[in-house]
């Protein structure tokens, strides 16, 4: 999809869809949305839908930051305590390093 060829109302529609889609525990949609529409929201000259796009993008950025924080914390905790948790952690793992606890 090429944003340059889209009409502004279509852009808003798309931006909203990504924003709403992110609530289905899909943080990547928010991440993509915040980058994709960043220029539209903050740099482009004013247009009618800009304010709403801006709201969505800001919310997406906040959502993304929260998700990154959550995931990072989990990854750190998991990596740190995986060996101690034993079999529960093994069952949660996709790839278990060989020859290591």
């Amino acid at each position: 999809m090429d944003l340059r060829r889209m009409k502004d109302e279509e852009k808003l529609d798309l931006c909203r869809k990504y924003y709403l889609g992110g609530f289905a525990l899909l943080p990547f949609l928010w991440g993509i949305n915040s980058i994709w529409f960043f220029r539209e929201a903050f740099y482009r000259d004013h247009f009618d839908q800009q304010k709403q796009i801006k709201t969505y993008v800001i919310r997406c950025i906040i959502g993304t930051i929260i998700w990154v924080a959550i995931i990072t914390t989990w990854v750190v905790i998991f990596q740190k305590y995986r060996a101690d948790w034993g079999m529960i952690a093994d069952d949660m793992s996709f790839i278990i390093p060989k020859g290591e606890l």
């Binding site: 034993g86 079999m87 093994d90 069952d91 996709f94 790839i95 278990i96």
Partner: peptide
């Protein structure tokens, strides 16, 4: 042994 048997059984991406 329980750990390694369990790891062998785990349907993982290895």
């Amino acid at each position: 042994t329980p750990t390694c048997i369990n790891r062998g059984k785990t349907r993982n991406l290895n």
